[in-house]
């Protein structure tokens, strides 16, 4: 089959109802806003290297495990998340991050699900492995309007993906812990407000921890998972004083997801259900 025909086949498998299309749209807007308005200092070479490597790894991984068609959407989402959150001054590391991210989806799997959110896994791996990799948690600033806009846009994505419990439980638990801490310390309320209205925190909550492929299958499990991640993130932030606490907390907690799933048997999430089937199904599918 000629290449362009197979390309068309790929495109034809993408449905407009797929929530990832909305997510890609929102992430693209955020990346553009970050580069144009907030001057993130993102090198276009890094963005190009990330997208190209992620798509190539997805294609290669798909071939190796025998996926019927090449689905670029998830790889694109991972690429955009990495472009937005991951910082490095070495292009090779940017490409490596994308390779590690997508590679982890194919290699680290339990019960037909990948364990780690790909972008999360890559960011933490690269930060631990190299001095030339970091996250700029302060880059979004704390402008209330900006935070609100991000939250609303993010929420739109979530409602399409029908997995808002993780995000909400994480945010509520994290807020409760921050406000509780401020109360205990006798700090003014402006301090936890400032800590909560952080753009990077909201992006993490709406676009990373919410990943339906790596969050628990049941509603109760997702609520529990959000709370656990918030608790761990608080500990990392105020005991270890690591600025990228939520991102680190998610990687630490991700191995709990299979355990939570084993405890609460639930529905498995599919990005796009075949016609007539619900988005949630009990039939595990090998979705990457």
């Amino acid at each position: 089959m000629p290449a362009f025909v197979s390309g068309m086949t790929t495109l034809s498998t993408i449905r407009l109802s797929d929530p990832r299309l909305y997510q890609i749209g929102v992430l693209t807007c955020l990346v553009t806003f970050g580069i144009v308005v907030l001057d993130f200092g993102i090198h276009w070479q890094n963005a190009a290297a990330i997208i190209a490597t992620a798509l190539a790894t997805q294609w290669l991984g798909g071939k190796l495990v025998g996926l019927p068609s090449f689905d670029p959407l998830s790889a694109l989402i991972t690429s955009l998340s990495l472009t937005m959150l991951f910082r490095t001054d070495v292009v090779v590391l940017a490409a490596l991050a994308a390779g590690v991210a997508i590679g982890s989806k194919f290699l680290i799997r339990v019960r037909g699900k990948h364990v780690f959110n790909p972008a999360n896994f890559a960011i933490v791996t690269l930060i631990l492995a190299s001095d030339h990799a970091w996250i700029s948690t302060g880059q979004w600033g704390n402008a209330a309007i900006g935070a609100l806009a991000l939250a609303c846009l993010g929420f739109l994505v979530l409602t399409r993906a029908k997995r808002s419990e993780t995000t909400l439980s994480f945010l509520l638990a994290f807020a409760a812990l921050l406000f509780g801490r401020a109360f205990w310390l006798g700090d003014p309320i402006s301090i936890p407000m400032h800590q909560m209205s952080n753009g990077a925190l909201l992006i993490f909550a709406f676009f990373m921890i919410s990943d339906p492929k790596t969050s628990p299958d049941t509603r109760l499990g997702r609520i529990l998972f959000g709370i656990v991640v918030a608790l761990v993130a608080m500990s990392i932030r105020f005991v270890l004083f690591e600025p990228a606490a939520p991102v680190l907390a998610l990687i630490v907690c991700s191995p709990l997801v299979p355990l939570i799933d084993a405890a609460f048997r639930g529905d498995f999430y599919q990005w796009h259900a075949p016609a007539g089937e619900p988005l949630f199904t009990r039939r595990p599918k090998c979705d990457y």
Binding site: D39, H132, S136, T137, G138, G141, H194, Q195, P243
Partner: peptide, 14 residues
């Protein structure tokens, strides 16, 4: 030793 320093809870702008 390594590189540039930035604030993590406020925006650092050039």
């Amino acid at each position: 030793r390594t590189g540039r320093v930035e604030t993590t809870n406020y925006r650092t702008v050039r």
